[in-house]
Amino acid sequence: MRRIFIITLMLALLLALGLPWVAQRMMEPRVREEGTIVRLYRHETDSVELISLEDYVTGVVAAEMPAVFPSEALKAQAVAARTYIVKRMVAGGLVNSCHEGADTCDDPSHAQGFLTREAMKERWGALKYYQYYYKIRMAVDDTEGEIITYQGRPIDPVFHASCGGHTENAEDVWKFDVPYLRGVDCPYETDPEPVRQMSIAKNQVEKALGIDLQSVSVAAGRDQIIKVVESTATGRPKVLLINDRRISASEVRQKLGLRSTDFSWQFKDDQVIFETVGYGHGVGMCQYGARGLAEHGHDYKQIINHYYTGVQINNINDN
């Protein structure tokens, strides 16, 4: 009796807060099929956990995209997340996987981020957890089984937070051409703070990049210490020349911890001040751009087809 009272009280609270769709979702009797099982390596427990595909996708979306984003953007992220893991499972797992017996892990620097339901509660708080979890779960359920394909095969659905107005061609960032990863305009990017500055001590830049900035002739001028010798199609630095050494902008970004490859710099005393635009590598789906497209009436399929050129959306359950 006490349990029934608590459940009734919770549903009433959700309705009072203006979340009837959450309450309705909780009241609906649902029998969820387990479907495909993902073998997920958890760094926290140092173990491989078995989790259903759709539960895995839910945890990825919660980790990788702000839950306040529109549902259509969350759906696009869900399809991308599902495609990522299905591509790896179809291939039989990564050949050089760091975690034996796992399809993927929960480290976003290695694969996709992932949040358990307990971690979601810690991130959002007890009350917002119910709102955000069921919002994300609905986005996952509404796209259940859907993946992005190119010529019948799952794509590598890379994404980033903010592109600064235009995404990049894959070969301009990673040196290999991918037909569905072409640069496109991003007209509605909603990043509230796309331009950032980061000051790094000159000796730290030297150590990180393995260069000697002090050896450059003073007569050459500070502006000539670092030169852009190749640019991307959108005008970002692609290859830099530092002390007669060619180094990619992607390597500079990685080693210095810059927010993006769209950067400029200036020297001030013993500091190098980098100014970056956007956040991430700039290839594939721009998350803040997806948010903007959704806010302008585009659905998730239109968002996906905007950022991934010439792709199709198929269901893995269709034979």
Rank of each mutant, 00 (worst) to 15 (best):
P154C: 11
I200A: 05
E146N: 13
V158D: 00
R82C: 01
A126D: 08
N314D: 15
R137V: 02
L209Q: 07
E64G: 00
M285R: 04
R82E: 03
F114M: 02
R39E: 10
D107H: 08
M27L: 15
E171F: 11
C98N: 10
R196H: 14
Y307C: 04
Q214W: 08
L115I: 03
T232G: 13
L74K: 03
A290Q: 03
D46G: 06
V68E: 15
M65S: 01
V60I: 06
L14P: 00
A119N: 01
G93E: 12
H296Q: 15
A73H: 02
G35Y: 09
V22S: 05
E34S: 14
L74T: 04
A201H: 13
L240S: 04
T45C: 03
V216N: 10
A111S: 15
V95G: 06
T58N: 07
P66S: 06
V140S: 03
G152M: 05
A111Q: 14
R3P: 00
V311Q: 06
Q214M: 06
E168Q: 14
H306F: 09
A91W: 06
Y307L: 07
D142G: 08
E34I: 12
I148W: 02
H160G: 08
T167S: 11
A12W: 09
T83Y: 02
D177M: 09
E49Q: 14
D262A: 14
S260Q: 12
A23Y: 00
S231V: 11
H306K: 11
K87H: 11
F114W: 15
Y188E: 12
V252D: 04
K268A: 13
V61D: 00
A73Y: 00
Q271S: 11
A249F: 11
F5K: 13
K128C: 04
T116D: 02
P194H: 07
S215W: 08
D185T: 10
T8Q: 14
G59N: 07
G310E: 08
V184P: 03
Y130K: 03
W265Y: 13
V195A: 09
K128R: 13
Y41I: 09
S231C: 03
K75V: 07
N169A: 04
G289R: 06
Y300I: 06
S264Q: 13
P157Q: 02
G164W: 07
R25W: 11
T116L: 01
F176M: 14
R222V: 09
D212E: 12
G278A: 06
G113M: 04
E64N: 05
L213H: 06
T143Q: 04
T8L: 13
L9F: 14
V173R: 08
I200F: 06
S248C: 05
I148P: 02
Y84G: 03
I7P: 00
D262M: 14
I136V: 15
P179R: 12
K135S: 06
V184D: 02
N169H: 12
S71V: 08
D106Q: 05
G289Y: 02
V95I: 12
P20S: 07
L181C: 08
V252Q: 04
P157R: 02
R3L: 14
V239L: 13
G292W: 11
T276M: 13
D107G: 01
A78K: 03
Q224W: 05
T149L: 07
I7M: 12
L11W: 04
S109R: 15
W21T: 09
R82T: 01
